[in-house]
Design a protein around this nucleic acid. Sequence first.
DNA 1: TCCTTTATTGGGAGCGTTCCCAATTATATG
DNA 2: CATATAATTGGGAACGCTCCCAATAAAGGA
Lengths: 345, 345
Amino acid sequence: MSNRLTIIEIAKHSGVSRSTVSRVINDDPNVNTETRERVRAVMQKLNFHPNVAARGLAAGKTRILGLVIPMGVSALFSDPYFPQLIQGISAACNQHNYSTMLWLADPEYERRMIQQIVSSGLIEGVIVASALNDDPVVEALMQRQIPFVLVGRHPTHTNLAYVDVDNRVSARDAVLYLMRLGYQRVATIAGPHNMIAGVDRLNGYKDALKTRGIAPDPNLIAEGDFSEGGGYQEMQRLLRHAPDAVFVASDAMALGAMRALREAGKRVPDDIALVGFDDMPFAAHTEPPLTTVRQPIHRAGFVATETLLALIAEGANAPRRVILPTELVIRETCGAHRASAKPTV
Amino acid sequence: MSNRLTIIEIAKHSGVSRSTVSRVINDDPNVNTETRERVRAVMQKLNFHPNVAARGLAAGKTRILGLVIPMGVSALFSDPYFPQLIQGISAACNQHNYSTMLWLADPEYERRMIQQIVSSGLIEGVIVASALNDDPVVEALMQRQIPFVLVGRHPTHTNLAYVDVDNRVSARDAVLYLMRLGYQRVATIAGPHNMIAGVDRLNGYKDALKTRGIAPDPNLIAEGDFSEGGGYQEMQRLLRHAPDAVFVASDAMALGAMRALREAGKRVPDDIALVGFDDMPFAAHTEPPLTTVRQPIHRAGFVATETLLALIAEGANAPRRVILPTELVIRETCGAHRASAKPTV
DNA sequence: TCCTTTATTGGGAGCGTTCCCAATTATATG
DNA sequence: CATATAATTGGGAACGCTCCCAATAAAGGA
């Protein structure tokens, strides 16, 4: 706080001008090698680091990115999705020498916050995680022309930059897999309809049915909220319609579903098979271990960051869309390893 | 980015000087009420927000806090502890109109990062979550005289500001509770010895033994790393020494312990009772539900933030230490509700 | 050797605020 | 009504840096 070290001090100590020091800091090639070394040494010795606010003001570059996590999905924040995402983002930031500013968009403060982000002039770009379908953050960002990338595609603005997995195809494949295992009444606990990942996965489920020429049965389709509690609740409801397998759109919900099944005295997978989505760390340790669609969350964060950086550096002609691959991780809840499993294909 | 709105534009539009606009922005009382309203209206209409970097430069106040999460505890980041903490911090920040900057202190970049934080001049103070015992972040912060508060007390620098729960007493009470339930061979899976919470809880365990005049048996003391995997592993080891109850220093480890017990064919709590620590959201949903020490993590984040803000505002004479209460949440893994439980007190 | 080109360096101006002091106006006091 | 006092306002300077252009030194070519 007090009398901070400035570029001028460094200049004095190394017998050059303020400008030269600035050049050294910014790796400008137009500096004599010897001079550069000398200045560097002084900076090191005095443990000098340029003032970010001043650089931001003078150059408009702050090396700071914003990360917005809408709190409509607050419940979600208690599952490991966001931590993993944040780790990915953070890793990329470290690598590129950027820092991250975090906003949990508490709805009450949301508007104010958006303004702050967008107008602070502090931030070079923004990553928006799991936006709701009609998220005002996205609108504000578009309006202000701040570079930003979504984690998860946007339902209506299709040409925004984003990184995502192919939720629809992944879901379809998972359901088809269950069907190949011989299950006849495959239900789903979908994600909320106001999140694109939720609807995409539901559509994938329907695609699978269609492929097999089966009409979707509303009784076999439940809508959860991606949380454990939601999965528990919806599974109880589904139970009344006797599915023999359930595609659950998140591992957290699958956890809840398993709890409901346990309480109902149903065995997994013998009575009802389950496939989850996410491959959260705990999925390998449930009883029995959960078959699930693995999505590379950490990687998504990493890639989103790099995409954003590219967007900032290259403007509109940077690559804008990345689809990351998923993988069906076959463990035990799908019953693939049972004797009684009867693959039909 | 381009031609941003500045205070001067606002001044022109409202027919006053730059200074007056600045006064309005900063709620300086020396402004005519009428003028104030007028300026406010203009700002609103033009959707003006002052440039953070400029304010930071001119006034040294940025309304930005730093949050450092040392990545030595990276594994931890996959359990809901940090999300809850972050939510608490974020809530407090929103309330006080501050923002948070997040650093996951990847060891490799740790030094560089510290410098950045500390010297960026961007940050008014720092919250350090779960510092390791010898964390260089803490040293750097002390040296640079940046206001900061720890979540979890520091082992050696006892007069640093922190918020914490009384891990030692809480652990002791939990263990005493198990003993009152009649268990004879109470073991523990402790946290890592390089984290103060780990050693405090272990000491609490030892305190309880001492109270009952029992010498600690090294065979009944395992050291985990606060992770599920660690709990699993350590429980397998403990099993060889036939404990009848285990105090597990984190819920995540308790989860792993339960998995180990399941695989070993032991029933909980009939064969071995368990008490965890944290009361993570999933603790209520394990099979059977986990008895555990609840600590108010969200609240800790909130209070830590307010403590930091006080520190920034009032300097050294702000309140510096907060101990938050814990609560033993009795569910089923402790066997309290069994017929076979035989309370001795 | 003189002139042109290139490599380095220096310094003024400006980024958008806040802070401080001086100026102006309104209000109160005798 | 004149003067002291309070309320309001304006503008210069500074915050620490980058950018741009001009200046100087070194090097190459005729």
